[in-house]
Design a protein around this nucleic acid. Structure first.
Lengths: 195, 195
DNA sequence: TTCGTCATGTAATGGGTTACATGATTAC
DNA sequence: GTAATCATGTAACCCATTACATGACGAA
C-alpha cells in the first residue's frame, strides 16, 4: 500500500508544464512551493526511476552539440499514463491531514474543477477545526499539569491552526465569488471553466 | 550517523518526570506537545527497546495484584545514563531547522539554563529570518511565472514564518525580563536557577 | 457477554537522508 | 586554471508507517 505519493505528484505536476531535467525539477519545486521543499537527490532520482518504471514518464536523452561519451543529460517528459496518475493523485481525497500534501494540491488547484477545490478546502477546514477542538480539550484536561513552556507551545500551536483556518476561509470565499461571477456571465457559449 | 533522536528525547524527557508504561507515554506526548504528536506503536516500542539497549532506561516488570502469567505491564524508568543522554540531546545545537525538534526542546526548556534558552531561541530566530529572506528572493524571481494559487501558498507560508518569529521574540523578551528580575533579586544566597 | 480501552509487542515494506562518486560547463 | 554550479546517479543506513497478533480488565 503506497502512502501519499507526494513526490510523485509534485514531479508530475511540474512535468505537466514542461519537460525538465531532474536537476531543474528540484529547483522548480522550491520555486512553486517556497523554500519549504528540500528534495534530496537520493529521493528525487529514485522517485523518477519509479515513475519511469510505471510508464508515467519518459526518459529522453538530450543530445547536445558535442555530447558524445560521458554523462548524458536526461530530460523527463510526462506520458499519458503519467497524466492520468497525476489526476488520480490530485483528486484522491486522502490529502487532508498532511499539510505538505495539502499545500501541494493547492499549488495544482488550477487542474481541478472549482467544485472539487471547494470540496477539498472544506474537508481540510473540518480537519483543522477538529484539531483545534483537540487542542482545547487537551488544555482543559492538562492545563494545570504542564509548565509555562509547554503551555505557550500549545497556545502558539493553536494560533497557527486558527490562522490556517482563516486562510482556508479566504480561499473558499474566493472560489465562491469566482463561481458566482462565472454563473452571472451567461454570454460565453461553452462551460466557463476547463477541465 | 543518527539523525535527531527526536523520539528518544521526548521519551526521556517524559520519563524524567515519572516512570511510565509505553502506553501512557504515548498519551503524555500529546498532552505536552498538543495533538501534533502521533507516535505509532511501531515506532514507540522499538525506540524504547533502543533506549533499553543503550542502558538509558530500565524495564521494570510491574507485579500487580493477581498478575501472574499472561501479559505483564512494563514500566520504563530513566537511568543515570538516560539523564545524561537527555542532557546531551537537549543541549546539542543542531535543533534549529526541524520545527518538531525545536518545539520539543522548548517543551523541556525548564531543564536548560536561561542563557541556553536564549541562545537556542536566537539561533532559531536567525534560521527563520533566513527562511523569510529565501521566500522573498524566491518571489522576486518567480512571481510572474507562478499562478495565483502558488502565490497565495507562498504568501501564507511567509505569514506563518513571520508569526513564528514574533512568537520567538516574545519568548526571548520573556526570558530576558525573567533574567533581569533574578539579577535584581540579590537576597537569595545561592544561584537563582538550578541546572 | 461484548465493547471499549488498556497494554505490548512483531514483521514487512517502503522510502527518506546522508554520503559517496563522477564528470561537464561556465564564469572569473 | 580553478571554483562554482550544472548534472546524474548509487549504496548504506535508519526508521516510520501499517498491519498483524494477542490478551487483560472494567463497564454496560
Amino acid at each position: 500500500m503506497k502512502q501519499t505519493g507526494i513526490l510523485e505528484l509534485a514531479v508530475l505536476g511540474l512535468l505537466k508544464e514542461r519537460s525538465m531535467h531532474g536537476y531543474e525539477l528540484r529547483k522548480q519545486l522550491s520555486a512553486k512551493l517556497g523554500p519549504l521543499w528540500h528534495v534530496s537527490w537520493g529521493s528525487l532520482y529514485p522517485a523518477l526511476r519509479r515513475l519511469a518504471r510505471q510508464g508515467a514518464v519518459d526518459k529522453v536523452a538530450e543530445n547536445g552539440p558535442s555530447r558524445g561519451p560521458g554523462r548524458n543529460k536526461t530530460v523527463y517528459r510526462i506520458t499519458a499514463v503519467g497524466e492520468e496518475l497525476f489526476d488520480g493523485l490530485l483528486r484522491e481525497p486522502g490529502a487532508v491531514p498532511d499539510p505538505e500534501l495539502f499545500a501541494l494540491k493547492v499549488a495544482f488547484f488550477r487542474y481541478l474543477q472549482p467544485e472539487m477545490r471547494v470540496a477539498m478546502l472544506e474537508r481540510r477546514r473540518i480537519y483543522l477545526q477538529d484539531k483545534l477542538a483537540q487542542f482545547k480539550s487537551n488544555l482543559r484536561d492538562y492545563r494545570e499539569r504542564i509548565d509555562s513552556y509547554a503551555l505557550t507551545l500549545q497556545d502558539h500551536g493553536m494560533a497557527v491552526v486558527e490562522d490556517d483556518i482563516e486562510w482556508i476561509d479566504e480561499l473558499i470565499s474566493r472560489e465562491k465569488s469566482l463561481g458566482a461571477a462565472a454563473v452571472a456571465d451567461k454570454s460565453s457559449s461553452t462551460s466557463p471553466t476547463k477541465l
